[in-house]
Nucleic acid binder design. Structure first.
Lengths: 326, 326
DNA sequence: TGGCCCAATGATAGCGCTGTCATTTGCGGC
DNA sequence: GCCGCAAATGACAGCGCTATCATTGGGCCA
């Protein structure tokens, strides 16, 4: 086009915009960040130069200079499991409009990987970090504390939180389900779920409440996290009349397995899931479940990230939604 | 602890590590990035200093200096829709082990927002950008071209791609479903879906193939994207005997609505979804669907991001999976 | 009319790293 | 015993911005 410095390299810099607009670099910087401080005429000239050059600010340089990245790190066990998608959505919907970006990482329920991802995330200097659950390792927790940024633990109510919390009481959820089964006259309960900490707490509450209700000790099946495992589990659940699945996906699988085994739901077995995925309402029989508002968790986590005011440990609760499966 | 410079500010810098280890900053940098270039004894000394100080490298500074961010931007319409979760997972699983981070943004099927997110993403200087679909605006496309980084468009086969593609032929999917309905003797077809480009292409193929098969012109219902809309749609579909839902979630809702309306599936109406969510296999009647391997799309996109070699427009295809709904 | 204040703009220095050369040291071969 | 070379380390400059002061030039009031 012309011989402006922009033709030298692909991406124009703020200085090149400044030169073209006949102003100093700092003025261009202000047009981008604090337009009110710049006279309208100047601003227009600068904006024209930016447009002509196709200028895209370099936030990595800006972040270094200002010590503000305008980004938050988000660490989830996995995104494929629909259960956390709403939470990610909630986070991103509350933070994106404010100019924050989301760095997403997955731990895959693996402690080593979690620690690695935590440090990879922290290396990018997010202004806050939101994770599902709590750090599994002491080293992970230490890193988070040293980072001196807001940290939000979600989907749980840790006894000893690092900073903020947006979650619910997993143990109480287990208790509620066991009591429900007991009051419905079911006697031989079972629990299916993974071996991660939150499922463990659900189990603990479930077991305890079953005992307190005078039922025989419930069975626990530790499964891998996909719905297919739920299908297979049905075969090992003969004789059980109330099953709490640690998440809805497992419950859907279980329902399918039960159908294959010719067992009636809810007549022969009651099934309760956790999460309240939309599909649960739509299938037949409609899934009874522990409703968790994953999006609210995400929104709350996002908000806790932005301000240090107010209560920082928030219990979003859950509710037992009894539909057709038990 | 002691009077090392680290006590001054929260986060120690590379220079502070260097001082404590008695080496130059560049040596510390090498221990982090190219440990083989450093003598074992020196390396151990540096590593000890890093441990003692709790050093976490500052990648934003490193990125600026090296002009490499080791990050990719990912833009999806929404993460709540389970259909893209597998793709994000595929991307992140192939890129994270190589040290890349993922910047995640959502467009919410909104052109303005998409453009905004694109430029926000680009401002962070990702080394590649992966998006579902193609930029909706010319400005968006221009930004991507100017960025001079690998760009992967997914979930579609754009006629005029910016760079790489990992997708499938949405129109052909529509054709396949219409032909299937026709050969099953269904005469009065309908299509339900959003008004976004990919759904539009599915409709186009569906419509065309229905015409070619001599059926009367199918009906198109434009719905919002949640499953609830599928439930409501059932009422407007009386008299139709074959319905293609642009995604599985809508299909689940439709199935529920049809049940409420007392219409038999597949006897009275056939229903085919798209995506092949795991649940579709588990419910009864099991959902017929156009199977898309979202995870493979993500993995392929990730791979296309890393190397400029080989074919860059990859059609991952789809397959029609007829189960119990039609 | 002089002084003061605010609006508008700029100069300077540096954020915490890494690329690109040096420079130093040890060691084998002739 | 000296030269050359590779291994190990370092000096320097600079990535593209922004924080933090200046500095300039009216406009307005006493």
């Amino acid at each position: 086009m012309d011989d402006s410095p922009a033709t030298t390299d692909g991406t124009p810099t703020l200085a090149q915009v400044a030169e073209r607009a006949g102003v100093s670099p700092i003025t261009v910087s202000r047009v981008v960040r604090l337009p009110d401080l710049v006279a309208a005429a100047t601003r227009e000239r600068v904006e024209a130069a930016m447009r002509e050059l196709g200028y895209v600010p370099n936030l990595v340089a800006g972040s270094l200079a200002s010590a503000r990245t305008r980004a938050v790190g988000v660490l989830v066990p996995t995104v494929a499991n629909a259960i956390f998608a709403d939470t990610i959505q909630g986070i991103s919907d509350t933070l994106e409009p404010l100019g924050y970006a989301v760095f997403l990482a997955q731990s895959h329920y693996d402690d080593v990987r979690e620690e690695k991802m935590l440090s990879a995330l922290l290396a990018r200097r997010p202004e806050a970090l939101i994770m599902v659950g709590s750090p599994a390792t002491a080293a992970g927790a230490r890193m988070l504390r040293r980072a001196r940024i807001p940290v939000v633990e979600t989907w749980d109510l840790p006894a000893n939180p690092i900073d903020a919390v947006a979650g619910f009481d997993n143990k109480a959820a287990g208790v509620a389900v066991a009591r429900h089964f007991a009051s419905a006259g079911r006697r031989k309960l079972a629990f299916i779920g993974g071996d991660e900490p939150r499922a463990g707490r659900r189990w603990a509450g479930f077991y305890q409440a079953a005992q307190e209700a005078g039922l025989e000790p419930p069975l626990r099946l530790v499964l891998s996290r996909n719905a297919g495992a739920g299908v297979a589990a049905a075969a090992d659940l003969t004789g059980r009349d109330g099953v709490f699945a640690a998440n809805d996906a497992l419950a859907f699988g279980l329902l399918a397995g039960l159908r294959l085994n010719g067992r009636g739901v809810p007549k022969d077995v009651g099934v309760v899931g956790l999460g309240d995925l939309e599909i649960g309402r739509l299938i037949f029989p409609a899934l009874s479940t522990v409703r968790i508002d994953g999006e609210a968790i995400g929104q709350t986590a996002g908000r806790l990230t932005l301000s240090r005011e107010g209560p920082r440990q928030i219990d979003l609760g859950f509710s037992l939604v009894i539909r057709e499966t038990g």
